Simulated scan of single mutants.
Amino acid sequence: MLSDPSVPFEQIPLEGIVFGDFDSRKEGWFLTTREASSPDEQEVVENVPFRQGPFDFSTYQGDRFFKNRQIKYTLMYFGDYDAYDDRKDVEQEIKRQLVPQTITELYDTHDIIYHWRGKVKSVEVEDDAKFGTLTATVTFDCYPFAIRDDDEFDDVWDDVYFPHWIFQEKTYTVNGNTTIRLANIGSHAMEVVGKVKSGSVTYNGATITSGQTKRFSLRKGSTNLAFSGNGVIEFSGTREEMI
């Protein structure tokens, strides 16, 4: 549909979702509503006799933990009012493309620089014969946090989202005792991989030589990492957000 020059511009969907090989815009579906309510917490609460209020053990090292979240989209297809068979083909095709897919990335044109990860929970389609339209309600069961598309330490200019962004170096030189300060502006702890590009560096008693990697956990905010030795280390990691 999008490649057909005879289709008026106003009839081309500008917003939509991409899940695997399914792109709602290319299939002619218009995204009308989206719902992404916050997920439920994985609560660990214990009541103790003769104590006012419970003990809440739901947090660990400053993080809260959540169950999967439900993300729901309403899509509309505008067909011919007398083309029932065509509408049934479209209904079958959206189910065929979405439901069998395993857990994969879900991209939403609304969520700039982020994507979700999950699987389809249900696809419900209503056929309005009077107006020749289909309304599809697609519900996804997704990982609770939105995941940034690119490496946190790669500043892709086109992806810079100024309301919530930080620029930081990807590669650092260790010369003797060196403290490297890394920032995590995500919504929970982020796993970062440090790869020694040349030389050798020591962190917390462990020496990493050229080509080797070590994993670090960065809490929200800033973290100081104390290195020694002589070498060059490069960091990579993916930020996750509660949006």
Rank of each mutant, 00 (worst) to 15 (best):
E169M: 13
T173Y: 05
H164Y: 09
F153A: 03
H188W: 12
A183D: 09
A189M: 07
W165R: 11
R148D: 13
S187H: 03
N184A: 07
F153D: 02
V125L: 08
D128C: 03
G194V: 01
F153C: 03
N184P: 05
A146M: 12
S198F: 07
F162P: 12
Q168C: 08
T139L: 13
T171A: 08
M190L: 11
M190T: 06
K195Q: 08
T179P: 10
Y143V: 07
D158R: 12
D154R: 11
F153V: 04
I180C: 07
F167G: 11
I185V: 12
D155G: 07
K197W: 07
W165I: 08
V125Y: 03
T179R: 08
A189D: 15
V196F: 04
R148V: 09
K130M: 10
V174S: 03
E191L: 14
N175T: 14
A129R: 13
D150W: 06
H188Y: 13
C142G: 00
C142V: 09
L182A: 04
N177R: 12
S198I: 07
T171G: 03
I185A: 05
A189P: 00
F153L: 02
I180P: 01
L182G: 03
L134N: 01
P144M: 02
G132R: 01
K197G: 06
G199L: 02
V138E: 04
D155M: 13
N175F: 09
V192A: 03
K130S: 15
M190C: 07
S187T: 06
P163M: 06
E152D: 13
G176R: 06
Y143R: 04
N184I: 04
T135R: 08
G176H: 05
E126S: 15
S200Q: 09
V160M: 10
D150N: 14
F145A: 10
G194R: 00
V160H: 10
F162H: 14
T179Q: 13
K130H: 12
E169W: 10
P144D: 02
K170F: 06
T135Q: 13
D151F: 04
D149G: 08
Y161L: 11
G199D: 02
S198W: 06
E126R: 06
E191F: 14
W165H: 13
D151V: 05
F145D: 01
F167S: 14
V156G: 08
F145Q: 01
R181V: 15
Y143T: 04
Y161I: 09
C142F: 12
D127Y: 01
C142T: 05
K195N: 12
R181A: 15
Q168A: 02
I166D: 14
N177M: 14
E126L: 11
F145G: 05
D149K: 15
L134A: 03
V192G: 00
A189C: 13
S187F: 06
D128Y: 11
I147V: 10
H188Q: 15
V201W: 00
R148I: 05
D128V: 00
D128K: 05
E191Y: 15
V156L: 09
T137H: 06
H188T: 15
I147P: 02
E152Y: 04
